[in-house]
């Protein structure tokens, strides 16, 4: 059984740093493995531990620095790691990213049974890449998955969270599953796991290795572009209430309720 887990290195959005000019200071921010992707990886490792001959390929696109999260994925138990890195990939939007990732999967893991991804990436939060990849690979996909009940070479049974209910769904493989919730039995790698991981080498591929035209990747291949980015502006001038707080708050509620 072959599982691909798509992972992304993201800046820590809870510790955003700004330059004097009010721009994001990316160099000052710590990076980490996107949490949702780590949950997807945890499920893949869990499946690996249940069966014989399961391979788990961690796949990422990013700068050379993204090797850090692949090392981490290997230490957690991934059996193979692929980094897609090239200046030509830079500026890819969700469509171009989905094309790059799905092309790499077609070429380097053609016999995959399952693709696991996080539901969202913390930095972009578009949640569009997984479904887009599934379309390009012509496989079925499900998202908002809170549990993988069972998965083997032929079938996956998953729990999907809806607004007011949970669906238990059965999918035949190959399929893509986007994970929304943390797996309870997750564990951190130990030092010996990192030592073991060093024995695996990270495969590195660039734009010339995948079968896509330059017009389909990076800025050229991205139909969307950022027109402007800005820090939300503060607009209001609040009136301060200085006394009788409780009474004033109640007055607000009562007068609004009577309107």
């Amino acid at each position: 059984m072959n599982i691909v887990v798509c992972v992304k290195q993201v800046p820590d959005v809870d510790n955003v740093k700004w330059t004097k000019e009010n721009n994001l200071d990316r160099s000052a921010m710590l990076t980490k493995l996107n949490p949702h992707d780590e949950w997807a990886l945890d499920y893949a490792i869990k499946i690996k531990n249940q069966f014989k001959n399961v391979s788990v390929t961690a796949l990422t696109m990013g700068p050379n620095q993204a090797k850090e999260i692949l090392d981490y994925a290997l230490a957690k138990g991934a059996t193979r790691a692929i980094l897609l890195t090239d200046k030509l990939f830079a500026g890819s939007d969700t469509l171009a990213t989905a094309k790059i990732l799905s092309s790499a999967i077609k070429k380097y893991v053609p016999d995959f049974d399952l693709i696991l991804t996080g539901q969202i990436a913390q930095d972009g939060d578009t949640a569009q890449t997984p479904a887009s990849m599934a379309q390009l690979l012509d496989i079925k996909s499900v998202s908002n998955i809170i549990d993988i009940k069972n998965a083997d070479k032929n079938t996956a049974i998953v729990a999907k969270k809806n607004k007011e209910s949970i669906d238990i769904l059965e999918l035949s493989t190959p399929c893509l599953i986007a994970i929304q919730q943390e797996m309870k039995e997750s564990h951190l790698p130990k030092i010996e796991d990192y030592a073991q991981a060093q024995k695996s080498t990270i495969e590195v591929y660039g734009a010339q290795d995948i079968d896509l035209d330059k017009s389909e990747i990076g800025i050229l291949g991205s139909p969307t572009m950022v027109y402007k980015a800005y820090r939300p502006e503060v607009t209001k001038n609040a009136q301060e209430i200085k006394e009788d707080f409780a009474k004033e708050v109640l007055n607000f509620i009562r007068s609004c309720a009577n309107e």
Partner: peptide
């Protein structure tokens, strides 16, 4: 975007 720290048009 960016955990809503940034607005992108």
């Amino acid at each position: 975007t960016f955990g809503s720290e940034l607005m992108a048009t």
